[in-house]
Design a protein around this nucleic acid. Structure first.
Lengths: 192, 192
DNA sequence: AGATTAATGGCACTCAGCGCCAAATGTCAA
DNA sequence: TTGACATTTGGCGCTGAGTGCCATTAATCT
């Protein structure tokens, strides 16, 4: 490769930041701390991540592409929202090796106020993937009611499952998703 | 009242800020601008609102109490999630005089990235109200699956309706909520 | 008039984030 | 081996949100 070689990597920054966040808290960790831990200038951190909030989201953009793929691979005769549900389950499947790390990461993201707020931006991208899929399947406009609702409700399911998952240490994420989905079914039936 | 009289009010700050946000954009408006418009020190603004993000949310805390009341006034034999749905509709009923203002406010909140992010914090409080109500009705713990899911899904419905409402200028917010709710029903039925 | 009470607002600070640009550090061609 | 070139680094200085501190101001009460 030509030019001056990079002094660090996204992964290295993420690891260092993760460690500091866990030990000193998110707010208690300045970008200066992270930069020093990595052995790089503060200015450089910003070249790798647009903001302190984004560090923990790592490769989320790649994941989104994978999510879209997963959805589009669902059998064409499967009911839309079931496809969405299964897509969400697939999207949140992690190997035993990384699941612990994923849990800690999500605990930070879902329980740190600043990160909670920032997540809304990421969730939006995630919802768009569902919207697009549902709109495509039902041959509707992406901004019409059903696709938008599917996106929001899909997110609602995922977040509910994550909260339950983080709150206890028994069931797997997949189990929690199923329980939540079933719960929604009950709620809807209860309406009649 | 004893002591030095206040130099301004929450309402005055809100009006001034709202005007500036509409004209110069949220990011383009500094707290210094708002302070000058109100004729007060920047430091004082922070005594009335904890952050720039919070100004537009005004009396939200009071609204929450009203929301909780509305829910608890629902007939005891009404199915839980229908009660939640009706509570949301009631909560979002506004007089013809204030509806235009409410629309502009929500457009700002839902379309400005910084505010979108910050809203997550407020939504959380709002969800808690639903959680509490549902938990109470079903005699479950507030943090168990059904109440949490009801909170998230309730929010999903409200946000979907607001997006539709802001996107077109025909139907009322109440109509949009009904369409969204019906849409969710379709999605769920489609699963079978 | 003087004591008391409560709000104001200035000052100095920290930290996130950005624009700018010179310096550093590699590769490649002659 | 040397010099041109490409690319990243990181320092500097700035803006703007938000906080702690505290003297000042402006009311009321005795």
């Amino acid at each position: 490769m030509i030019g001056r070689p990079p002094a660090t990597t996204h992964a290295e920054i993420e690891v260092a930041a993760f460690d500091l966040f866990a030990r000193r808290g998110f707010a208690g960790t300045t970008l200066e701390h992270i930069a020093q831990a990595v052995g790089v200038g503060k200015r450089t951190i910003f070249r790798y991540y647009p903001s302190k909030n984004d560090i923990l989201w790592g490769q989320f953009d790649d994941s989104l592409a994978r999510f879209a793929e997963t959805l589009h691979e669902m059998p064409a005769d499967m009911p839309v929202f079931e496809a969405v549900y299964r897509g969400i389950v697939d999207f949140n499947r992690f190997d035993g090796q990384v699941i612990d790390h994923h849990r800690e990461r999500m605990a930070l993201i879902l329980r740190t106020p600043e990160l909670q707020a920032h997540s809304a931006i990421r969730y939006q991208q995630w919802r768009r993937v569902i919207e697009e899929f549902v709109a495509d399947r039902l041959d509707q406009n992406q901004s019409s009611v059903i696709p938008v609702t599917a996106g929001h409700v899909g997110l609602a399911l995922a977040l509910s499952a994550y909260e339950s998952w983080l709150g206890s240490d028994g069931p797997s994420l997949e189990d929690e998703l199923e329980r939540v989905f079933e719960g929604l079914g009950q709620l809807m039936v209860l309406r009649e």
